[in-house]
């Protein structure tokens, strides 16, 4: 199985993004997804910057994929999307059917988790349109993934997020701006102050979600490193790690160790990255649940 680094979900300054990928170039990951997926207003890096970063990472031996916005409303957002889809060099991850419309029958693409592929018929359709790799929705249990993969079109790769906060919801509203009593159109880019998002707790102090602009994530990162053998048995091809402000390098190292058969890797990661984890979706339960493998 290959390891992939998903796109950075947060709004980091350009220098931080650059330094993150300089480090990532040295990490044992095979695939790197680049680009802004959450908010069209975040333009610390433009397409040319992402392409330059992609060229550097490709030079370091990484497969580079350009990831795209999940929620597209304005024509200007579609124009940017069209330019990404027509970049001519790197494969594109479609996170909305708009991207599928631009990529279908033109170039191979990655069908992202937000396309809501819950069954083999949808997967067959995406493969016909040119999907070369796909990710199941975050809530899809292993049992359903197994049933889909039993009828998976040949030559289609499957990628599963095995580490990082889960993308749970998207809205027209910016929850970070709302926290600061600002309208989205005058947000002042307050999300830049939260490189790991803004944690939302219950009134009893239980961390539940992370507010990240218009996106809501799980507060607990998902961790399926204990299920690597199950993922291998299902013939999953790629394991995705979603970047976070701290602990990403440790997660990559732990995933690589787990792939090499190190049964203690997940435990060591617990010491390196404190705080709860979740893996409930994989086992068909509430996503927030944690079941020790």
């Amino acid at each position: 199985m290959k390891l992939a680094l998903g796109p950075i979900p947060y709004f980091w300054p350009a220098e931080r993004v650059q330094s993150f990928y300089r480090e990532a170039a040295e990490w044992p990951v095979d695939i790197v997804y680049l680009g802004e997926t959450v908010c069209a207003k975040r333009r610390a890096l433009g397409l040319s910057d992402w392409l330059a970063l992609g060229a550097e990472l490709a030079g370091a031996g990484k497969e580079v994929v350009l990831s795209t916005l999940v929620l597209l409303e304005a024509e200007s957002e579609l124009s940017t999307l069209r330019r990404i889809c027509g970049n001519g060099r790197f494969m594109v991850e479609a996170n909305d059917m708009a991207a599928v419309q631009f990529l279908a029958h033109e170039v191979p693409f990655v069908a992202g988790a937000q396309l809501n592929c819950y069954n083999h018929e949808t997967l067959a359709w995406l493969a016909e349109l040119g999907a070369r790799r796909w990710l199941p929705p975050v809530e899809l249990p292993a049992a359903s993934l197994e049933a889909i993969l039993a009828r998976c079109p040949p030559a289609l790769e499957t990628e599963v997020q095995v580490f990082g906060r889960l993308p749970l919801a998207y809205s027209a509203r910016c929850f970070t701006a709302r926290h600061h009593n600002l309208p989205k159109d005058r947000c002042g880019f307050r999300c830049r102050d939260y490189p790991d998002g803004l944690t939302l707790f219950s009134q009893e102090g239980q961390p539940l979600f992370v507010l990240n602009g218009i996106q809501i994530q799980s507060a607990a990162p998902c961790n399926l490193l204990g299920a690597v053998d199950e993922l291998a048995a299902l013939e999953v091809d790629v394991l995705r790690i979603t970047p976070q402000d701290r602990g990403t390098a440790e997660a990559v190292a732990a995933a690589r160790a787990a792939l090499a058969g190190d049964g203690e890797a997940a435990g060591r990661l617990a010491e390196a990255v404190p705080g709860g984890w979740c893996n409930g979706y994989w086992y068909g339960g509430a996503g927030m649940d944690w079941r020790c493998g």
């Binding site: 999940v70 929620l71 937000q114 809501n116 929705p137 975050v138 809530e139 889960l166 749970l168 919801a169 998207y170 539940l208 979600f209 809501i216 799980s218 979706y281 509430a286 996503g287 927030m288």
Partner: peptide, 8 residues
């Protein structure tokens, strides 16, 4: 595109 309910 909301799975807050199933997360809990």
């Amino acid at each position: 595109r909301c799975v807050l309910s199933s997360f809990i």
